[in-house]
Design a protein around this nucleic acid. Structure first.
Lengths: 397, 397
DNA sequence: TCGATTAAACTCGTGTGGCGAGCATAAACG
DNA sequence: CGTTTATGCTCGCCACACGAGTTTAATCGA
């Protein structure tokens, strides 16, 4: 591969360039004015007129008069067209699931939810599929992609394993309402990181490291707005870097995994408790007890140190501009700031200490994965092919 | 950032698209025929005619009749134009330096070399700068970029530190023959990995992990042909992931670094020797003695295990399609294959074991860094702006 | 209240680059 | 030496952005 990404020379690739750039701006900053978009993209007013007109005709965008602030002819605000394309995003979590619909501005509206009565894959998938189908019926052809965030290891678009759900390999193909419609499956932590990098605290940074702790560590490295998720899509399994105790065998099959020293299991070990059934809840309870109980506080401190030390190593290796912490990772840092910070500093290479990356709390919280699912879905829709398909559909109607 | 990479809508961005695609093909596969390029890019023969004519007029490419194999009108092979643009690549190593010139097919021809008489930065830079200047005089305006591969940590285009050269922060700006010409500085292991991913064994793979051991570990992750080198360009410091012994303090300032358990220093420790002055040479000597001396063989085995275990963790985290090993990393694997393989397998997550990435020897050897320097330099030249600058230059002449 | 000012939108002629159909050409085959 | 085959060339066409000139819709100020 000579060039970073293959360049295609066909004119077809150029057909939607301007239109995509405009839609991307609308997506990045819902509520932008048309004039601002044109300025930012360096478009002449003529091109702006032409492009917006085309997009309006295709029901891809609507213009509403902008509140006039200064003198001059008022401009318009670009918004998704009321009959424009939408995507369905699903967040499939340990105890429940949520289905949302999002238009091109990427703002999901949660429309269907449910709590797992049984964790049996068939039951869960069936319930979710019904929700997806209801949304599909409601929005018809407007639905352009279905994207699923799931608390599981995902490889080549398939669930390989999920400890929190208790699943082995599971096929989610039943969630596809239509075989021709893209069905995108992604790991929840990866998608949450993607969302932070695109729209959350880390928006604008080119290299973002997201780390989250629930049971074990999850996360992703996002470079130029795309998660670095490897050859099979199963990258970001930072929890299985051997930062931990070589003598501990991890359920994943490896040994010394970081996973084992940063979550509820680590806290339990430090406290001499047996391995907790639900490490997440155990950790939360310990965090609650910590202020009152010095023994628990110490165990939390030790765990935070494990988190900080591993994070320092990752920063050394990956050199992010910013690190976002989600879930228990942020809670641990807050609960044991001195230990965390000391371990982090101690683990950084000397030349990095003068100017380390900011380490901040993720802002999207429990909604991160859902937002990330919307992001990947829209990335599929807002392509030359995606728009061409939409345009073809429209012209038949 | 809504879209993975900002899309610009300006027509200027389109002006060189086809031309760049053709030049990229020539670069990727020197000796391609024009017909093959057109087929691969989906260009009509009309476009191919137009584009090659334009490129020929601009001295960017030459056509020579291809050896006719089958029936049909014979086509031509595309080669760099004899008066076309070139780049200067420098490989600055521990004991010597080399300067090469490469045309657009990316094949460097080594033209100037020297051995450090003193490692004093000023002396070294002065000698290299003279070499670069001589090449610049020889090729004049044809030189479009200077790219330096150096055995040092590089941040924001500056050398931060080099243990093998014994340098602290050093400014290489003196190597710029002209302030307007791009001067690109890169870490040698990163560039070697880039070269492997583009032209070496790993060519074609979208996610490549390159690991090399000299003194400590170097390497890089290359995704879609671009090294993932972080916010400041100092990514790829895998040697400072805390895979090692927490009690060992690394010269880098951190502790437990992988560096310390995979190179000559580790072998010496296992053998009870004092820390070697030149860990690289020490390791080579140990590797030579290993077949005859079981104690040395065991120390090497232990070191190979450290390498395999860490590599497994990285594979878990990064999910490469292929891993390339350079320098002592490959030597260690060959010398202690069973230990290496066992540690690697033991460290992989279970679901990865069925289908682990190939782990292969890097093929470019000591020339990897030089090739990588050429690659980055050409990446700068073969852009819209680069070609536009060249065209402007030509039209004045 | 109404002209001046201002910022933005619209119109339209221009240019670039690729498409594709039809024709021309240079080799190998039989 | 015609046929076959793959390729190159010509030329009219089209999509899309540009940019200069014009129009429009608001605020400001006398």
């Amino acid at each position: 591969m000579a060039s970073p990404r293959p360049r295609s020379a066909r004119a077809r690739d150029v057909r939607w360039r301007g239109a995509l750039a405009v839609l991307d701006e609308m997506r990045r900053e819902p509520g932008v004015t048309r004039a601002a978009v044109a300025r930012r993209l360096g478009l002449s007013t003529g091109s702006a007129t032409e492009i917006t007109a085309r997009l309006r005709d295709l029901s891809l965008l609507a213009e509403t008069p902008a509140a006039t602030a200064a003198r001059g002819r008022p401009t318009t605000v670009l918004t998704p067209h009321p009959d424009g394309p939408v995507v369905i995003a699903v967040d499939l979590r340990q105890e429940d699931w949520r289905c949302a619909v999002a238009p091109l501005d990427g703002r999901p509206e949660i429309a269907e939810t449910g709590t797992h009565r049984s964790r049996d894959p068939e039951h869960v998938i069936d319930a979710v599929a019904q929700g997806v189908r209801r949304l599909h019926r409601r929005h018809g052809d407007r639905v352009r992609a279905v994207s699923v965030a799931i608390a599981a290891t995902v490889q080549r678009g398939r669930v390989v394993q999920s400890s929190v759900l208790g699943w082995d390999a599971v096929d989610l193909a039943a969630l596809a309402v239509d075989p021709r419609m893209p069905l995108l499956i992604g790991n929840d932590a990866t998608l949450a990181g993607l969302a932070e990098a695109r729209q959350g605290v880390a928006a604008g940074a080119a290299t973002v490291l997201h780390i989250t702790v629930e049971v074990g560590v999850g996360g992703t490295l996002v470079v130029d707005g795309r998660p670095v998720d490897g050859a099979t899509g199963a990258g970001g399994e930072f929890g299985h870097l051997p930062f931990g105790d070589r003598d501990l065998r991890c359920p994943c099959g490896a040994r010394g995994c970081w996973d084992l020293v940063v979550d509820g299991r680590a806290i339990a070990r430090h406290l001499g408790d047996p391995p907790p059934r639900d490490a997440r809840t155990y950790a939360e309870q310990a965090l609650a007890r910590a202020p009152a109980d010095p023994r628990v506080r110490a165990a939390i401190g030790r765990t935070a140190r494990g988190l900080g030390a591993g994070l320092a190593g990752l920063i050394n290796a990956v050199d992010p501009a910013i690190v976002t912490l989600g879930g228990l990772a942020e809670s641990l840092r807050v609960a044991a700031e001195p230990e965390f910070t000391a371990a982090l500093a101690d683990g950084l290479m000397r030349f990095r200490r003068a100017n380390p990356p900011a380490v901040v709390a993720a802002t999207l919280g429990r909604d991160g994965a859902l937002h990330g699912a919307v992001v990947t879905a829209l990335d599929h829709v807002l392509t030359e092919d995606g728009l061409a398909a939409w345009a073809a559909l429209r012209s038949f109607a």
